[in-house]
Design a protein around this nucleic acid. Structure first.
Lengths: 212, 212
DNA sequence: GTCTATAAATCGATAGAC
DNA sequence: GTCTATCGATTTATAGAC
C-alpha cells in the first residue's frame, strides 16, 4: 500500500522532504520531455531512488504531474493578483511585466510545464482557466480599462495587453533554446537584462497616453 | 519491405496522395498530443487506414514527425524572408507581423507542432535554428537596425523586436485554449481581428521614431 | 497494396522479501 | 521504507496471407 492511499492528511518531516525531492526531479524531467515523454525511470533516476519508491510516495505518475501543476498555478498568477488600482498605472503595469519576466528567468521549468499543458489542450486546467483565472483577468482588465478611460494610459484592449505581457515574457523561458540559438552568446542573465530593456521601452511607448 | 526503404526517389500520384493524407492526419494528432502522446493507432484512425499501412508509407512514427517538421520550417520563416530593405520600414514590419498573425490563424496545428518541438529542446531542429534561421534573422535584424540608424523608426533592439513579433502572434495559436477560456465568446475570426487591431496599435507606437 | 495477427520492446504499477 | 523482480497493458513495428 502506498503512502498516497493510506495518508490521512498528516506527514512527517522526512516524508515531506522525500516528496520535495521527487517533485523537483519530476519538474526537471516533465518540463523538457512532457508528460508522455517522461518516464518513471527517468524521474526515479533524477530523484536518486527506485521506481517503486516514487510510486510509493505519489501513487502514480499522473499524480506527480497533477501535483506539480496544482502547486504551480497559484504562484504563476500571483504577480497579476498584486496589480493594484491604487498605484500609478504605468508603474503598476511595468512592474507586473517585470515580475513576469523575472519568473521566466528564475522558473523556466515551471513556465515550460505550464506551456506544455496549455499547448496540449489543458485537459487538467481548463476548468481553472475559464473559472478562477478568467475572474482574475477580468477584474484586472477592468482596472486597466478604468485607467484608459481616465486618460492615464493610452486606449487599448486590456485583455490583449495582458496577453501580450504573458506572451513576451514567457517566450524567453519557453523558447529559450530558439532565442539563445539566434542571439550572440550572452552569459548568465544578460539575455534577461536585454529583454527587460526592450520590453520596458515597448510597453512604455504603447501605454503612454496620446497628447491631449 | 516498406515504400520508404525501397523508394528510389520517384513516386506515383497515388503514393503522393496517400502520404499527404497520412501527414494531414499526423499533424492533427501530433499537434494536440505531442510526439510521445500520439500513437500510430490514432494517426491510422485519423487517416482512415491500418497501422501497418501507415508504417508502410513512412517506415516509422518518428519519420512522419520529422517529415512534418522539415516541411514546416520553410513555410514558417517565409514571411520574414520577404521583409525587404527597399520597402517603407513601418509598412514592412507591420506587414510581417500581420502575415505571422494570419499564419497563426490559418495554421494553428503547425504552430503548435513547432512550439512543442522547441519547448522540448528542439532535438531535431537545433542545428537549423543556429544555422539557417540565425543567418536569416541576423540579416533582417541588420536591415531593421539600418532603419533605426537612419531615424526612420525608433531605436530599439532588432532581434528582440523580431522575438516580440514571434511571441505575440504565435501566442494566439499555441495558447488558444487559454486565450479563448478568458475572452468572452468571439465567433470565428473575431479573436484574430481583435489581435490584429491591438498588435497594429502596439507596434505602431513602439516603432514610431521619437520627434526630432 | 492492404489487411489480420503477432512479435518485441517499453513502461506504469504491483508483489513480496528484507 | 526500500529494494529486486515481475506482471500486465500499451505501443511500435514486422510477418505473412490475400
Amino acid at each position: 500500500m502506498t503512502i498516497a492511499q493510506r495518508n490521512t492528511g498528516k506527514e512527517t518531516r522526512i516524508q515531506r522532504e522525500k516528496r520535495e525531492v521527487i517533485l523537483k526531479a519530476a519538474l526537471d524531467v516533465f518540463s523538457i520531455q512532457g508528460l508522455r515523454g517522461a518516464t518513471l525511470e527517468k524521474i526515479a533516476e533524477a530523484a536518486g531512488m527506485s521506481k517503486p519508491h516514487v510510486i510509493y510516495y505519489f501513487g502514480s505518475k499522473d499524480a506527480i504531474y497533477a501535483r506539480l501543476l496544482e502547486s504551480l498555478l497559484e504562484i504563476w498568477v500571483s504577480p497579476l493578483r498584486d496589480l493594484s488600482r491604487d498605484g500609478d498605472p504605468m508603474t503598476e503595469i511595468l512592474t507586473y511585466m517585470r515580475r513576469k519576466l523575472k519568473m521566466s528567468r528564475d522558473m523556466p521549468r515551471e513556465s515550460k510545464l505550464f506551456a506544455t499543458e496549455i499547448l496540449h489542450g489543458a485537459p487538467r486546467t481548463k476548468a481553472t482557466l475559464s473559472g478562477d483565472l478568467k475572474t482574475l483577468v477580468d477584474e484586472k482588465a477592468a482596472i486597466i480599462a478604468g485607467w484608459s478611460a481616465e486618460g492615464k494610459i493610452a486606449r487599448l484592449d486590456p485583455h490583449h495587453l495582458i496577453f501580450s505581457i504573458w506572451a513576451m515574457t514567457q517566450h524567453y523561458a519557453d523558447f529559450d533554446v530558439q532565442v539563445r540559438s539566434i542571439l550572440p552568446e550572452t552569459g548568465g542573465d544578460a539575455l534577461f537584462d536585454e529583454a527587460d530593456a526592450f520590453l520596458t521601452s515597448m510597453f512604455t511607448r504603447t501605454l503612454r497616453p496620446a497628447k491631449a
